[in-house]
Measured scan of single mutants.
Amino acid sequence: EEKRQVKQVAKEKLLEQSPNSKVQVRRVQKQGNTIRVELELRTNGKKENYTVEVERQGNTWTVKRITRT
């Protein structure tokens, strides 16, 4: 359940930055209360990979860091 929520948060964050792209989740890793989500962003056939680190704060998820990989 929490992985599902985190995927959603990570996707939304990337789509905010580039709204007309397609996002696909590649991998989800958990480390303590930080969850790392690896995503693939496609814009006009151009692929970019991103890693989004999401942290739990109380009962909400906040995006800590977005890295292009």
Rank of each mutant, 00 (worst) to 15 (best):
E16W: 03
K46C: 09
Q17T: 12
E1I: 02
E2N: 08
K3G: 09
Q17W: 11
L41I: 11
V23R: 00
N44I: 07
Q31Y: 14
K11A: 10
K7F: 09
E12Q: 12
E40S: 08
E1V: 06
Q5F: 11
Y50G: 00
V28G: 01
I35T: 10
Q5I: 10
V6M: 07
E53G: 01
N59S: 08
K22N: 10
R26L: 15
E55W: 10
W61A: 06
R56N: 03
R36H: 13
T62V: 14
I66P: 01
V28T: 04
Q17H: 13
Q8A: 11
Q31M: 15
R42W: 15
R27P: 01
E16M: 06
L39Q: 00
V37D: 00
E55M: 10
E53F: 11
K30Y: 15
I35C: 05
Q31K: 11
N59E: 12
T60Q: 15
N44L: 08
G32C: 04
K3M: 15
E55V: 13
L14P: 01
L41P: 00
E38T: 10
V9A: 07
R27Y: 08
E55N: 04
N44M: 09
Q31R: 11
E55G: 04
T62M: 12
Q5W: 06
V23L: 05
E53T: 09
L39P: 00
V54G: 00
K64A: 10
L14Y: 01
V6R: 02
R65V: 08
E48N: 04
E40P: 00
T67Y: 13
T69L: 11
N49I: 14
K13R: 11
K30L: 14
L15R: 07
E48L: 07
N49G: 11
V25E: 01
R65I: 11
T34H: 08
V52L: 08
Q17P: 01
E48G: 03
R42V: 15
G32W: 04
T67L: 12
T62R: 12
N44C: 07
K13I: 13
R68E: 05
E16S: 08
G45V: 03
E2M: 06
V23C: 04
Q5G: 09
N33F: 06
T43N: 12
E40W: 09
N59H: 08
K64C: 05
W61L: 12
K11T: 12
V6T: 04
R4D: 13
Q8L: 06
R27M: 07
N33H: 06
L39W: 01
E40C: 06
Y50L: 04
E1D: 05
E40F: 07
V37M: 04
N49E: 09
V6I: 14
K7G: 15
I66A: 02
P19I: 05
T69R: 11
K47W: 10
L39Y: 02
K3A: 15
T69F: 05
R68Y: 04
V23I: 13
R56L: 12
V25P: 02
E55F: 11
S18T: 07
T51E: 10
Q29N: 11
Q5T: 12
R56I: 07
E38I: 13
Q57S: 12
N59K: 09
K11H: 04
N59F: 05
E16V: 04
A10I: 14
Q29R: 13
T60R: 13
T62S: 08
E16L: 12
R36N: 11
P19C: 05
V9C: 06
E53H: 06
G58Y: 04
R65E: 12
V23W: 03
T51C: 08
K47N: 07
V9L: 14
G45W: 06
W61Y: 14
T43L: 11
T34G: 07
E48A: 07
V23N: 00
G58L: 04
K3H: 14
R65G: 06
E38A: 08
T51H: 05
T67P: 00
V25G: 01
E16R: 04
Q8P: 03
N44H: 10
R42N: 14
V23F: 02
K47V: 13
N33W: 04
P19G: 03
L39R: 00
Q8T: 08
N49Y: 15
R4P: 03
E55H: 09
G32I: 02
Q17R: 12
T62C: 07
K46M: 12
N33E: 08
K46L: 09
E12V: 06
L41G: 02
K30V: 14
S18C: 10
G45I: 03
N20T: 10
N33R: 08
E40I: 12
I35L: 09
Q5E: 10
K11S: 10
Q31N: 11
T51P: 00
E48F: 07
S21G: 12
T51M: 13
E38Y: 15
V52T: 00
N20I: 05
G32L: 04
V28S: 02
L15N: 03
E40Y: 08
R26Q: 07
R26H: 08
Q29G: 07
S21P: 02
K7S: 15
S21A: 13
E55I: 13
R4Q: 11
N33V: 08
L15M: 11
Q5H: 09
V23P: 03
V63A: 03
V28A: 05
V37Y: 02
Q17Y: 12
G58T: 02
Q5V: 11
T43D: 07
V63Q: 00
Y50C: 03
K7N: 07
K47R: 12
K11P: 02
N33Y: 06
E12F: 02
R4L: 08
L41W: 02
K3Y: 15
R26M: 12
L41E: 01
Q17I: 15
Q57H: 11
P19Y: 01
V52H: 00
A10V: 10
T67C: 08
R27T: 06
A10E: 01
E1F: 03
Q31E: 13
R65D: 09
Q29P: 00
R68G: 04
R27C: 07
V54Y: 05
K46H: 12
N44A: 10
V23E: 01
N59T: 10
N20Q: 10
T34I: 12
G58S: 04
E12T: 09
W61G: 02
V23S: 01
R65M: 13
Y50F: 10
T67Q: 09
R56E: 03
S21V: 07
R4C: 08
V25M: 02
T43I: 12
Q31T: 14
K22A: 10
R26K: 14
A10C: 07
R27E: 04
W61T: 06
T60S: 14
Q31G: 05
K46V: 13
Q8V: 07
K7Q: 13
N44K: 10
V6Q: 04
S21F: 04
G58E: 09
V6A: 15
Q5M: 14
K13F: 11
Q24W: 14
L15I: 05
I66K: 01
E12G: 07
N49K: 15
Q57Y: 12
E16H: 05
P19L: 03
Y50P: 00
G58V: 03
N49H: 13
K46D: 06
R56D: 02
L15S: 04
Q29A: 10
N49P: 02
T67F: 13
T67S: 08
E16K: 06
Q17G: 10
V6F: 02
E1S: 08
R36C: 07
K30I: 15
S21Q: 02
P19E: 03
T43Q: 10
I35F: 15
E53K: 02
Q8G: 05
T34F: 09
R36T: 13
